[in-house]
Computed example of a mutant assay.
Amino acid sequence: MMKGLKKWRLFSILAALTVFLSACGKEQLSTLTPAGEVGKEQLDLMILSTGIMVLVIVVVIAIYAIAIVKFRRSKVGENHMPKQVEGSHTLEIIWTIIPIILLLILAVPTVVSTYNLADVKGMTAKDQEGNAKNLTVNVTAKLYWWEFEYPDLGVVTSQELVVPTGEKVYFNIKASDVKHSFWVPAIGGKLDANTDNLNTFYLTFDEKSEGLEDGVFYGKCAELCGPSHALMDFKVKSMDRDSFNTWVDSMKATGEETASAEGATASQGQELFEASCMSCHAVSGAGSGGGIAPNLTTFGDRNRVAGFLPHDEENIKAWINDPQYFKPGNKMPQPETINNGKKFTDEELSALAEYLLGLSVEK
């Protein structure tokens, strides 16, 4: 009976592990399916280090098993004393030299890779006309959202990083409030965003994101930064250079003006937005960063509300009506604060949602 129970326990554990591991390997968010040069190099280092660790474990287990089998009491008797090796210079040399060799095998490629990935000289490279040769993005992490500014292009956006494929993209990483960490698992990297210094590195995006399950790669904050840390996501859209240039032109075309709304309900939403939300949110992709709230120019092109909710009218309304319920600690005010002490009515929420869904540069 007990043997049967033990078998079922083992089966349950294996089943649970199968469910747990079923999420591994998704192209849009897994380090095990890298889609960029940096991610592939980091995966190679992970495989190397894992291989060394497995080798050490196998050797230790093998020695342990041999000792148990060879010197078991039933075989050698009660009074057998194995040969003592204390003070053996040969053994001491062996177990000193082997770890040194293993550490060198691991350390040399790791150090070389670290220095290569930290090479950001291309960030300041200029062509003959004085224009930047490579794309640079200023990333600012905030509670609990991300701002992406393209200083050489005069474009700024939030929550969705848009990049060209097949070239190095350089990043300046910083935080505006507390420490965060910028990470796109499928692309590589993971670099701290600090409030007191600027960190720089580069990534390459080898594949277009449009063929992925959600049409984007997923980015994360990898540093515990507050009660809504787990919900501090961003998305990455990678596209060919021509499509990226078109996107930049569309962002610039929004100018410094408020986006216009089509339809009576959307017009009502625009009026409410300008009265209650415009002091914090921008609806133009042209300009520079530094906003106190996410830029909403491309809100209609996103696939998530607040970074994690499904992108539909009901979730937009729920988010506006009570942002603290969904993301505790975020800096978006409750509706009473910006609407003369009152909650928005359902009609007003619907109008705001329709207006926001109409903010697009891709449709």
Score class of each variant (00 low, 15 high):
56 V>E: 04
53 M>S: 11
65 A>L: 15
69 V>N: 05
43 L>K: 08
48 L>Q: 05
57 I>P: 04
71 F>Q: 11
45 L>P: 01
64 Y>S: 13
52 I>W: 08
65 A>K: 09
58 V>N: 01
43 L>G: 04
67 A>Q: 14
60 V>S: 11
57 I>E: 06
70 K>C: 10
76 V>D: 00
71 F>V: 03
56 V>F: 05
66 I>D: 11
41 E>A: 13
61 I>C: 07
60 V>T: 14
53 M>T: 09
63 I>A: 13
45 L>C: 03
53 M>G: 09
75 K>W: 03
66 I>H: 04
57 I>A: 10
53 M>L: 10
65 A>M: 14
60 V>E: 13
72 R>T: 02
38 V>T: 10
39 G>N: 14
75 K>C: 02
50 T>R: 03
73 R>E: 11
55 L>G: 13
42 Q>M: 14
57 I>N: 01
55 L>D: 02
74 S>R: 11
66 I>E: 08
72 R>M: 05
75 K>D: 00
48 L>Y: 08
57 I>V: 07
52 I>F: 10
49 S>E: 12
64 Y>M: 13
62 A>Y: 09
61 I>H: 06
39 G>H: 08
67 A>D: 15
75 K>S: 08
49 S>M: 08
72 R>K: 15
49 S>T: 09
60 V>W: 14
74 S>W: 04
60 V>N: 14
72 R>I: 02
57 I>D: 07
76 V>L: 06
60 V>C: 14
47 I>F: 03
67 A>N: 15
42 Q>S: 04
44 D>A: 10
57 I>C: 06
50 T>N: 05
66 I>F: 14
41 E>W: 06
40 K>E: 13
50 T>H: 05
50 T>K: 04
43 L>P: 11
44 D>G: 05
39 G>K: 08
39 G>F: 01
42 Q>G: 01
67 A>Y: 07
43 L>C: 08
52 I>P: 07
49 S>G: 06
74 S>E: 15
58 V>Q: 01
46 M>W: 06
75 K>F: 06
54 V>H: 06
73 R>Y: 09
63 I>T: 05
41 E>V: 07
61 I>M: 11
51 G>M: 02
45 L>F: 03
49 S>K: 12
53 M>H: 05
38 V>C: 04
59 V>W: 11
66 I>W: 10
51 G>H: 03
38 V>A: 12
41 E>D: 15
74 S>F: 07
50 T>F: 06
74 S>N: 13
44 D>M: 01
44 D>V: 01
38 V>S: 10
64 Y>D: 13
64 Y>L: 05
71 F>N: 13
68 I>T: 11
39 G>V: 06
39 G>Q: 12
38 V>E: 07
51 G>C: 06
74 S>P: 05
69 V>Q: 03
67 A>R: 15
70 K>L: 14
41 E>N: 14
73 R>K: 14
75 K>E: 00
69 V>D: 08
41 E>C: 10
47 I>Q: 01
58 V>G: 05
62 A>T: 09
47 I>R: 00
76 V>S: 04
54 V>W: 05
51 G>F: 05
